[in-house]
Amino acid sequence: MRRRDVQRVPNIRYRDAGRRNLLDIYRRRDAPQNAPVLNYFHGGGYTGGAKNREARPLLYQLASQGWVCISANYRLRPQTTFPGHQIDAKKVIAWVREHAPEYGADPSGLFVAGSSAGSNLAALCALTPNDPVFQPGFESADTSVTAAICLYGYYGHYFGDPPDEPPPPLQPQGYIHPGAPPFLIAHGTKDALATVEGARNFVDQLRRASDSTVVYVELPGGQHAFDVFHSPRFEAVVDGVEAFAAWVLAAPQRTPDQPVSLFL
């Protein structure tokens, strides 16, 4: 999955919680300037996972195309609980706004992405720009994003919440609004951990409320964690992410009722 033309700059500190507040930067070795940014959060159910596990084909592919990609750790249970994970995710975005230009990035094109629990974080980041609840001590930082990419996300109840009640507002669907940025959501039909029905419900709510385009892709037979290994299925998803990102960057003025051509 590694590419000779891509440099990984590891273990940059963005906050003070030790290794859980480190991030890696992927960029092309010739250090392109004014590059768009992908900010990625790993999965693991808020209890495990690491910044160098999932989505590496995506990170290396976009970096080889001239992007600056950032993959970040964040605090996990029991070290923290909600909204601690989300505060860390917002801090990463604030760090990107301030420091990514030092690595050739232009944060005016900032995409947030994640897998499983990281998808939940990415979606909530996209739906809560500059919300002071998730930015204690850095309320003035710009945490808005250009678009969100959600891979096999979990959109249900947090630990300990009654399963027979609606998801609490700390879940992304509690923050859906007309001004949401464009979304690309990909989910496997055989996901045994984060059900495809949950993804369909989240997409339906987004499409009913948002003024931006919502692209939804179902992967027939796809299971959870389909981005851990390099596979034809994930190669197709990577191609789709590239097409979606190029469309968003090239045509930000496009309206939601105009067609989107993505070939997966």
Rank of each mutant, 00 (worst) to 15 (best):
A245R: 06
D30H: 09
R2W: 11
A225D: 15
A236Y: 07
L38W: 09
P252W: 08
A209F: 03
F229H: 08
L23W: 10
R97G: 15
V260Y: 11
S119W: 05
E235K: 07
F41K: 00
K90I: 03
A194Y: 13
Y46I: 05
R207D: 00
A250P: 02
R53Q: 13
I87R: 02
N11F: 01
K51N: 04
S71L: 07
T143Y: 04
A236W: 02
R207W: 07
Y74T: 08
A225R: 09
D88V: 10
A243Q: 15
N34L: 12
A17D: 14
P232V: 11
G160Q: 12
A199E: 06
A123W: 03
N39Q: 09
L170K: 00
W247K: 05
R2F: 10
A117F: 07
P232Q: 04
P10E: 15
A113M: 09
D88E: 04
Q86L: 14
P83V: 07
H177C: 00
A89K: 00
A100Y: 01
H42C: 10
A250N: 03
D5Q: 12
S261C: 08
F229C: 03
V9R: 04
V241W: 01
Q223P: 10
E197W: 13
L184E: 04
Y14K: 02
V112L: 03
Q86H: 13
A113E: 09
S210V: 06
A122P: 02
F82G: 07
W247M: 05
Y14H: 01
F234R: 01
Y216S: 09
K190V: 12
Y216L: 05
A148E: 01
G221E: 06
Y158Q: 10
S261H: 13
N52V: 11
R208E: 15
R2P: 06
N39L: 12
L206K: 01
K90A: 11
D164P: 03
V203L: 03
A89I: 13
L58N: 08
Q65F: 01
S115E: 12
D131R: 10
M1Y: 14
F111C: 02
R77T: 12
G66W: 08
A31K: 07
R2L: 10
Q223C: 02
G104H: 03
A126S: 06
G174Q: 12
P182V: 10
E197T: 15
V6T: 02
T128G: 04
T213P: 00
G222D: 07
R28E: 00
P32F: 02
G48K: 06
Q65T: 03
W95H: 10
F138I: 08
V112I: 11
V196M: 02
E218V: 13
T143I: 10
F82Q: 05
P178W: 07
L121T: 06
Q135H: 01
A225G: 04
R4K: 14
C125R: 02
F134C: 00
V145A: 03
Q65E: 14
G114C: 05
Q135M: 11
V217M: 13
Q7K: 07
A63G: 06
D211F: 06
T146P: 12
L193V: 15
D161C: 01
E218I: 13
H177D: 14
P182F: 03
T81R: 08
G114I: 04
L170G: 04
P256E: 12
S212Y: 09
S212D: 08
A192Q: 11
P178G: 02
V241E: 00
D106H: 04
S71M: 09
V241P: 01
P78M: 11
